[in-house]
Structures are given as C-alpha cells and as structure tokens.
Nucleic acid binder design. Structure first.
Lengths: 146, 146
DNA sequence: CCTAATGTCTCTAGCAACTATATGTTCAAG
DNA sequence: CTTGAACATATAGTTGCTAGAGACATTAGG
C-alpha cells in the first residue's frame, strides 16, 4: 500500500492534485490507515497514471471522466472512446494551425527590432494595428488560445 | 463617443471583458455620460484593439500591461518590447513542438479503432500505459499544456 | 524511548482570464 | 409615453490546479 506522497511520485502528480482528483470524483475515495491517512493500491496508481497521461495529451478532466467511465465498462463498443480521441485530435490540430500562424507573425515582429526607439518599434506597431497582420486570427466565438 | 457595446463590437471584445479590463487597470477609467454610462473615444478603441490583438497572439495580460506601459513612453529603446515578443515567440515555439508530438500520438491512438470492444480499445490502452508512447512527454516542472 | 523532522490531514483562499447571474437604471425607437 | 434593449453594479462561478494555516501521524536517529 502506498501513501499519497509515494503514489504521487510514482504517477508524476503532486499530492494536492491527487486529493483534488478525489474531491471531484475522478479517483474513488481512498482507503484510510489507522491514523486516517490515505492508502492506495496498484489499481489506484494505474487510474492516476491514466489521468496524468490523458492530461498530458490535453484532454480535459471532463473528457477523462468520460474515458474512465468507458473503461470501467469494458464490454461496450469503443466508438465513444474513439470519438473523444478524435475530437481531441481535431482540437490539437486547430491549435497547431493557429500557433503556426502566430509564430510567423511573432517572427515578423521580432526581426526588425534593432534597438530603435519605441515610436518606431515594430512590435508595438504590429500589435496596435491588426491590419498589418499577414494572417487573420479572428475567432468565431470569443475563443482565445490558452 | 462610443458606448461600451459599440466599443466592444468594434474591437471584438465582449462587454463584460471591457469592464474587466478597466477593473484591473488595463484600460483607464472611462468617461461617463450624464446617466453614468461609459463613453469611449478613438484612443480607447485603439488601446483595446491592441490588447485584443496581443491576447490573440497569446500574450498574457501581464505582458500586455508591460507592452502598454512601454508604448506610453515612446522615446525609450525598443529593446524591452523586443524581449517580451521574443519570450512570447519562444513559448509559442515550445508549445508548437509539444503539440506536434501530441498530434502524432493521438493519430496513432485513433487509427486502429474499428469498432472493437473497449477491452481492446487502443485509446484506452495507450492512455493507460505511458510506456506505449512513441515520444516522451514528461514535464520538467509540473507544467501542463493549456 | 524520546525527539525532531518530515509527511499527512482538513479547510480556506488564491491564480488567470474571463463568464454568468441577479437586480436595477438609462436610453432610443415607435 | 411606453417598451425593450443596452447599460450599471456586485457577486459568484468556471478550469485545473496551487498555496497557506494549523493540527495530527509516522519514521529515522540518538
């Protein structure tokens, strides 16, 4: 049996985060020792590693909640899990596309800064006037990049 | 003079967000009409557009605060603005790199899902076992992608 | 066996950057 | 002159944690 600290270290998750996951119901309530400390077995470690890994991949906790509830019922079709992963992939792709154009714009901003005065600063100038953009970053619905 | 709604529409920023920016001091306190409604001129619109655009580029409000205070004193060197933009560029590049490897992994996850049962689901399997990753996404310091 | 250090417990509050909700006031159109 | 949209304030909620306070548990050293 692992204490919360060992568990966190094994899974690469901080202790308060583990408690937080329990609090919001992503992890089941842990067994307790005689002295009221949380104790975890191998199953909890696997579940936490799953969560950690999915977070790394950019899944939201809500998506992870869905994936976990799917994997808790292993005899159903994998279509739902596939759909979640595909949605995640689509989101990653769109973030990628946006970031690439941002990178291009930032590079344009940065090149010409050779110590001039602010008044001539390309950075400030570009930021002040959207029409100088090469690409169009308008968002459909208040969506901002993270 | 524009009311807050027109201003927001012009700049592509929602009304509560404009008020929020005023509250945290990114925008100066607006003039008020006889009936206590905020009124904005062209300068405020430009400042808001600047903020909006910088947010689109992924700058934090703190970075934007710095950029704004730089542009308020236009006779200094543009080195500081350049540094902020370069830091932003570096961050964008690192996000890009991570996202590209995530994309690859998600694609690997998704391909093999042809309606099998959850028990054999590649999505769940890959998420459950980090060792199946082609690439290594471990973070140096608890840093998670947004 | 005792002590000191570390680890754990709960609870609350804070972070970014907004967004939503509730309740009330002002303004412009018909 | 009335109605309804747009405005005002204030508070609380969102996501995914992180940090702090103050008290109890456990473990390693002497």
């Amino acid at each position: 049996m692992l204490t919360i600290g060992k568990l966190g270290a094994e899974a690469g998750v901080k202790v308060p985060t583990v408690r937080y996951y329990e609090q919001i119901g992503l992890l089941p309530k842990a067994e307790r020792s005689a002295g009221n400390q949380r104790l975890y077995g191998r199953k909890a470690l696997e579940r936490l590693a799953f969560i950690r890994h999915a977070r790394d991949l950019g899944f939201t906790l809500e998506a992870i909640r869905d994936l976990l509830s799917l994997s808790d019922r292993p005899d159903q079709s994998c279509a739902a899990a596939d759909a979640i992963a595909k949605a995640q992939l689509a989101e990653v792709e769109s973030r990628l596309a946006r970031l690439m154009s941002l990178k291009a714009e930032l590079e344009r901003m940065v090149v010409q800064c050779a110590g001039g005065r602010i008044a001539d600063c390309r950075v400030i100038e570009v930021l002040g006037d959207h029409s100088l953009c090469a690409t169009d970053h308008r968002h459909p619905e208040g969506e901002h990049i993270a």
